[in-house]
């Protein structure tokens, strides 16, 4: 348990760091973006909304830095992320609330599936070193150095168009109202397939490479040779001895790499106009919608941390050496 407690402490530290970065970064923004917004909206903003934005941007010159910081923290704790410039007058929290489920559904699910598929394939490729399986390596290397979004562009060019089963954009048929009926779910799945496929193809190759290398490394460990000496069936040696151990560094690698992967996968949403956080990030950059940018950054960080925590629990379950039994 002490292992998990330590990790929890680390996650709290990371949350604090992300929040603090978010507090300081907007101070670099030139000029007074809030004033610009107020002018644009011509007095449609409540004084409360204006105040919240001032706190967010650290523009409250009368307060000391410390008290600005604490008002900012207080505001965050109340779930107030400010007001979105682009989706005025929606609060950032609501905007993100609309996008998050789509991103979790698309990016979250495909990232996990990609990890499992890639790890399984990498185990086989690593085990069958020296056979046809090796010819997969150059292909996966090539694919894993392509940005995800570009692969999305290629997928759209090749697989969509008039008469194609795959829609080129959106998360569901225009005109449908999101609810839990079959028509809507079917449409969602149909729209999600191609972006999901894009993310899978790009992320799988990275996992294949890393798992392959771990398999090759582990295969010459003594206990694998011992397993062969014991006369165990090939499958058993490969799965319970080699792959089972090679999996461990791959799981911790998964946790560590999430922060990198999520960035790439989010942008697949842009090319497919998929209404998740990635698309919102794109719109926020274009419109200089700082509150939305910051909110998205915070939420993505929190989600990655949560995923990390889950990976930690998985690691704990997989590696008896991290468990402290009294």
């Amino acid at each position: 348990m002490s292992y998990l407690l330590k990790r929890l402490g680390f996650y709290l530290l990371t949350v604090w760091a992300a929040v603090t970065i978010n507090f300081f970064v907007p101070r670099m923004i030139p000029g007074d973006p809030v004033q610009a917004l107020i002018t644009k909206q011509r007095g449609q903003m409540t004084s409360e909304a204006v105040r919240s934005l001032y706190v967010l941007f650290g523009l409250d010159k009368d307060e000391s830095l410390a008290s600005q910081y604490f008002s900012y923290l207080g505001q965050l704790l109340r779930g107030d992320l400010g007001m979105s410039f682009t989706f005025f007058p929606s609060p950032v929290a609501d905007v993100i609330g609309d996008g998050l489920p789509w991103t979790v559904g698309l990016v979250g699910i495909t990232t996990v599936i990609g990890f499992f598929l890639g790890t399984a394939a990498g185990a086989v490729v690593g085990w069958r070193r020296g056979t046809w399986a090796d010819s997969l390596i150059p292909v996966t290397t090539f694919v894993s150095s392509i940005p995800y979004f570009w692969l999305g562009l290629v997928a759209i060019a090749l697989l969509t168009g008039p008469g194609s089963f795959f829609p080129a954009s959106g998360a569901y048929e225009i005109g449908l109202v999101p609810n839990w009926d079959w028509q809507f779910i079917g449409s969602t799945v149909q729209h999600g397939l191609l972006p999901a496929f894009t993310i899978l193809v790009s992320s799988v190759s990275g996992w294949i490479l890393s798992m392959r290398n771990m398999m090759v490394t582990v295969s010459s460990d003594d206990y694998v040779t011992v397993a062969h000496a014991k006369g165990l069936p090939e499958r058993r040696v490969m799965l319970a001895y080699a792959a089972r151990n090679a999996l461990l560094p791959n799981v911790s690698g998964f946790a560590l790499a999430l922060g990198f992967i999520v960035g790439g996968t989010l942008l697949v949403e842009i090319v497919f106009s998929y209404p998740g956080l990635g698309l919102q990030l794109f719109q926020a950059v274009g419109a200089k919608d700082y509150p939305l940018l910051q909110g998205i950054f915070l939420i993505i960080t929190l989600s990655v941390l949560l995923a990390n925590l889950l990976a930690d629990v998985a690691y704990l379950a997989l590696d008896p050496r991290t468990r402290r039994e009294a």
């Binding site: 680390f10 990371t14 760091a17 992300a18 670099m28 999520v262 960035g263 940018l293 950054f297 960080t301």
Partner: peptide, 21 residues
């Protein structure tokens, strides 16, 4: 370093670069 590792890199780079003058 672990903190910097876990914070998603690309969104962080995006918020910093888009806030720069």
């Amino acid at each position: 370093s672990n903190v910097f590792l876990v914070i998603p890199a690309l969104p962080l780079i995006v918020i910093i670069t888009s806030s720069l003058p």
